[in-house]
Design a protein around this nucleic acid. Sequence first.
DNA 1: TAGATTGTTAATCGATTAACAATC
DNA 2: TAGATTGTTAATCGATTAACAATC
Lengths: 211, 211
Amino acid sequence: MPGSAVVAAETVGRVSLYRVLLSGLQQAGIKGVFSHQLSTSAGVSAAQVRRDIITLGYSGSPQHGYDVAELIESIDNFLDAPDGQNVALVGVGNLGRAVASYFAGRRPKLRLVALFDIDPEKSGRVICGVRCYPQEKITEVVRSERVSIVILGVPAPAAQAVADACVAGGARGILNFAPVALRVPPGVYVENLDMARSLEKVAYFARKAGG
Amino acid sequence: MPGSAVVAAETVGRVSLYRVLLSGLQQAGIKGVFSHQLSTSAGVSAAQVRRDIITLGYSGSPQHGYDVAELIESIDNFLDAPDGQNVALVGVGNLGRAVASYFAGRRPKLRLVALFDIDPEKSGRVICGVRCYPQEKITEVVRSERVSIVILGVPAPAAQAVADACVAGGARGILNFAPVALRVPPGVYVENLDMARSLEKVAYFARKAGG
DNA sequence: TAGATTGTTAATCGATTAACAATC
DNA sequence: TAGATTGTTAATCGATTAACAATC
């Protein structure tokens, strides 16, 4: 049964990238693709592309490679929940809003259903078509709106308390922009996305390479 | 000689996080710290914290652990260029602006000196105190402004051409938000930061964990 | 068929962790 | 000193890659 085995987080990330690349090929009218073509665009080895595709439960043929449309469908089945998933964003700052607008409409299976902010001027309003609640209501609204995914755009000192409130409401996944390791119970997945950290890595190696 | 050995990208990222955590401790008036304390906040093992600190060239003592102020200074010496580094942002959309405002003032050693956008309404103007140029001028301005780091906030189809122009101007590091593997010459460092990919990883595991 | 590609295994590689002697 | 921590080594772990037989 596909989906029942444990899949590495890295694999899921690569599959997500393959879908983006395949959509581009499809829009260009390309019907078939070989592993080494995806390999080049994704920046991984061809063997890994083939292994990832096997994980999806899809098979290619030695003569024609992989059918683009069918492979996209396999990835959809793998990545997307049939009924979609509800997403909330906590911390409606510049970053939070950019993230929200970045996703708006791109992935219809992920629905942004609630915003939260500590600023009373923001909570109570409707921003980008989504209602913004005060942060005290996180647990209540996460539960009532059946939010399974939370995007955490709050400052580091507030992150743990907000995460706790989200988990208490039933959230199972957190995309954490704050530079702290969140403590969460087993079964809750946390993905850290620290932009300052990434930029400092680039700065470091730009300097070392520049000699 | 510290800094001459090859250091893994993961190590640099962790060190960046340690600095953030240590700054928080320092502001709270805490003078000393043990490896297991940083270990908890950073979400890595204590042995790894100790090994990373050795990489910095700093030493603690078995009795007092590490001196917070001295450790921060060691990290500054490790991560920061003495004269700072110049940064450019290509693609002044919602995301780009959020990233720019996110960094403004936080890291004085990283100076945002130029923006680029394909939209003629943006180029020519001054946005957030930084001049915005048309994209045709990338190579020229990157060279004249001595930009070593580029934040790439353009759509995927444009990313490779923009990266090429930046590298031609002398850029040595790229923070790439576009979901494509950039081809760059040896000595140029690329860090990929794909938010859609991260969110889909969260969505996948939130679903699997939720049962 | 011939040949390039897929599916699959074994080998490699590197990072992380566990364990422990050295230290103050 | 006693004891907890640091510095350092060996072991573990897992992901990635290389290689090759199977396939159409």
